[in-house]
Simulated scan of single mutants.
Amino acid sequence: EMDAKIKKAFKDLAVPPKPAATKVAIMIADLIRKAPSSGQDAVRKQLLQRYEEKGLIWEGGALPVLVTLINQVQEKPILEAVSLALWQVLIGFEGSEAAGAAKILVQLCKDKSLLVQAHATAALLELGSAGSHFRVQILEAGGLESLTTVIASIDSDEVITKQGVNKLIPYKPGQRQEAAAGALRILGQEPAAQELVARAGTMRHLISICETCTAPEGSKTREAAAGALFGFLQLSTNRALLVEAGGVPALIATADTASDEARMLAAGALWELSLEVDLRPDLIRAGAVPSLLALCAPGRSDATH
């Protein structure tokens, strides 16, 4: 039996959107976010159920409606709320179809609102994690290029001020870059993505994150960037590209000072680089050997070892 609050959410959703769309979208997101962690998946499953009432049929539940709403709204508060709801619905997504969400989410990465970008990049991370066919859809829609543009931008004080304050949905500086780097890491599983990074300039921007996100509040962003770099080094030409872009010192610094997860990923990236005989002198000159030896010390995780 569908929960009464979820039934109300379905009834209040409307295409074309009504003035209450912001409130309804946040209500949908809160049904998930405010549920106990053990019950959030159950809420999502209900929201994704086929819904029918008075001749109105929604295959896929709230997902196709949210995608349709995004296509029809321009008002910033509504778009921020609906993109938040779409992201929350897609967390842990296991479906085979996503109502064209890949294309619209890639488009939202270009929106002027930092919140919309943050929600879209986080949703792309979830959708890309759901399977190869979704990753291909994201790539075909220009997702790698759009995500690269997001990680290349900086949340300066001026940018944050221009964004303004949404009292209902807070924005944390660096939130969109962290999610975008995570989505890029997922896309790196696809051979087509390996081929695209050189043209998009993705590698140098990921390197920049590893170099600059050294404060504690940037640790997750740095971790995601190190993971993305590791993933993109499956291709031999990308290994050479990273070295040419000055990425070895950034990986060494990450391996020396970052979180345990970031250290492991940076060590993995250095391992990938070491597979190229011609690049080994670059690793030695940059000081990779002492850093890697330090990671072998007792107390490190088995994966890092």
Score class of each variant (00 low, 15 high):
61 G>D: 01
261 E>M: 10
262 A>R: 05
175 Q>A: 12
304 T>Q: 08
35 A>F: 11
258 A>P: 00
282 D>C: 11
243 V>E: 06
108 L>H: 06
175 Q>Y: 13
8 K>W: 03
144 L>N: 00
196 L>T: 07
207 I>M: 03
241 L>Q: 02
129 S>Q: 05
292 L>M: 15
20 A>V: 11
196 L>V: 02
285 R>I: 14
115 L>F: 08
153 S>A: 12
208 S>H: 05
59 E>W: 07
274 S>A: 05
33 R>N: 12
254 T>W: 02
38 S>M: 13
7 K>W: 00
56 L>D: 13
176 R>Q: 12
215 A>Y: 07
47 L>R: 14
6 I>M: 00
172 K>R: 11
52 E>Q: 15
72 Q>Y: 06
281 P>M: 09
167 K>P: 10
130 A>D: 04
112 K>E: 15
262 A>K: 01
297 A>L: 14
226 A>H: 03
157 D>M: 14
160 I>M: 04
84 L>G: 07
113 S>P: 13
168 L>K: 13
125 L>V: 06
298 P>T: 09
207 I>P: 01
197 V>W: 07
97 E>R: 02
139 L>H: 01
165 V>W: 04
13 L>R: 01
176 R>D: 12
25 A>T: 04
142 G>E: 15
217 E>D: 09
281 P>H: 07
305 H>E: 15
90 L>G: 08
241 L>G: 10
230 F>S: 07
262 A>D: 02
183 A>E: 14
297 A>Y: 02
188 G>I: 01
201 G>P: 04
15 V>C: 07
15 V>K: 03
8 K>H: 00
199 R>P: 08
226 A>K: 03
95 G>H: 06
298 P>Y: 10
71 N>A: 03
34 K>R: 13
289 V>E: 12
275 L>F: 10
177 Q>H: 14
230 F>P: 06
124 L>F: 05
200 A>I: 07
279 L>A: 00
214 T>M: 15
117 Q>M: 00
226 A>I: 06
303 A>V: 14
204 R>Q: 12
151 I>E: 05
114 L>W: 03
217 E>G: 01
290 P>R: 08
15 V>H: 03
287 G>Q: 11
161 T>L: 13
255 A>W: 09
296 C>K: 02
214 T>F: 10
162 K>C: 08
80 E>K: 12
101 A>Q: 07
203 M>W: 08
84 L>F: 14
68 T>R: 01
23 K>M: 15
279 L>C: 05
230 F>R: 12
222 R>K: 08
148 T>K: 02
269 A>C: 03
98 A>Q: 00
71 N>K: 09
182 G>A: 06
278 D>L: 07
268 G>V: 03
264 M>G: 10
166 N>S: 01
147 L>M: 05
